[in-house]
Amino acid sequence: QCPHKWRRIFCTLCNSKRHSRDRCPSIWRSYYLLQGNRRRALAIHKIYCYNCGEKGHFGDDCYHDRSSRVPNEDGSAFSGENLPKQVK
């Protein structure tokens, strides 16, 4: 009798099962990228974690318990996923 039982959420834009296509973060999370030669090297020494304050990883990728009580289901900008492919 659960009304959610038959509702399958699936995003055809990013393949996520957590939201439908009309609420896909990729609708607004798009960066206008610089072209090749204007880029500089990655400032890897400045990666800090918003969750624990330590150096070397981003908050989304933290291995400690989450500090904020607000859930982060779809991931935020502060994730290793948000680095360009060649430096991951």
Partner: peptide, 29 residues
């Protein structure tokens, strides 16, 4: 991450950056 990797111009991305900012200090920090 995008300014660390320097692959965006911040002034051309103020919209997404404003949303990232509200998300960081409103949900995740």
């Amino acid at each position: 991450p995008r300014t660390l990797s320097a692959d965006i111009s911040t002034t051309e991305n103020l919209g997404i950056l404003l949303m990232d900012l509200f998300e960081l200090y409103g949900k995740n920090f």
